[in-house]
């Protein structure tokens, strides 16, 4: 059946069976690859997209349930070549290691911030407690979301300079 959805501001028509998960339509029909297929039964959060501004697990949503809806993914967080404040915070605070959970975290955190979420770690943890990350231990993810909530600004050219680039200082 033919359906119409809006993805990151662009109207798209897709031909899909009505119960096809939104995740599969995005990834396989529309080549929108930021939502990741993780557990595919709602347990991990990495497929999270915004449906009319609300974070939803795209693996559990049949495409027919979102006809006419506005879908946002990581591709739509900022104009091409640019990053949102949250994405900059993610880089600055090294909030990604393998990166597989990152898309879902970014979308859920974007909704949290757009709904006026604070930089309080406990509040953030309540909002994003359903997202699993196995690499970072969540510490740097919390740091990044807090920084974005505070409206910190980031100069990413100095992020690398913050590393210990001279490593000869250790006495052997």
């Amino acid at each position: 059946m033919s359906l119409n959805i809006t993805v990151n501001g662009t109207s798209r028509t897709v031909n899909a069976e009505p119960l096809t998960p939104l995740l599969h339509v995005l990834r396989e029909e529309l080549d929108v690859l930021s939502p990741k297929a993780g557990c595919q039964n709602g347990g991990c959060g990495t497929c999270t997209v915004l449906v009319d501004g609300e974070p939803r697990r795209s693996c559990l949503i049949p495409i027919s349930a979102v006809e006419g809806a506005e879908i946002r993914t990581v591709e739509g967080l900022a104009p091409p070549g640019q990053l949102s404040t949250l994405q900059e915070a993610w880089i600055h605070h090294y909030a990604a290691q393998c990166g597989f959970c990152t898309s879902g975290f970014l979308m859920a955190a974007t909704a949290y911030l757009e709904n006026g979420g604070s930089d309080d770690h406990a509040e953030i943890a309540t909002a994003l407690g359903g997202h699993v990350c196995r690499c970072t231990g969540y510490v740097k993810i919390l740091d990044a979301i807090s920084a974005a909530a505070r409206g910190d600004s980031f100069d990413l050219t100095t992020t690398a300079a913050g590393l210990r680039t001279t490593i000869k200082g250790v006495d052997q």
Binding site: C39, G42, G43, A125, G130, V132, Y138
Partner: peptide, 27 residues
């Protein structure tokens, strides 16, 4: 049989975490 029945820690399980790095070089 599902991902959700294997309990991995979430952000809400995060304790106050303190990390100290020591540098005692290897040869």
């Amino acid at each position: 049989g599902q991902f959700g029945s294997y309990l991995a820690p979430s952000m809400e399980d995060l304790p106050e975490l303190e990390c100290i790095i020591l540098e005692n070089p290897s040869a």
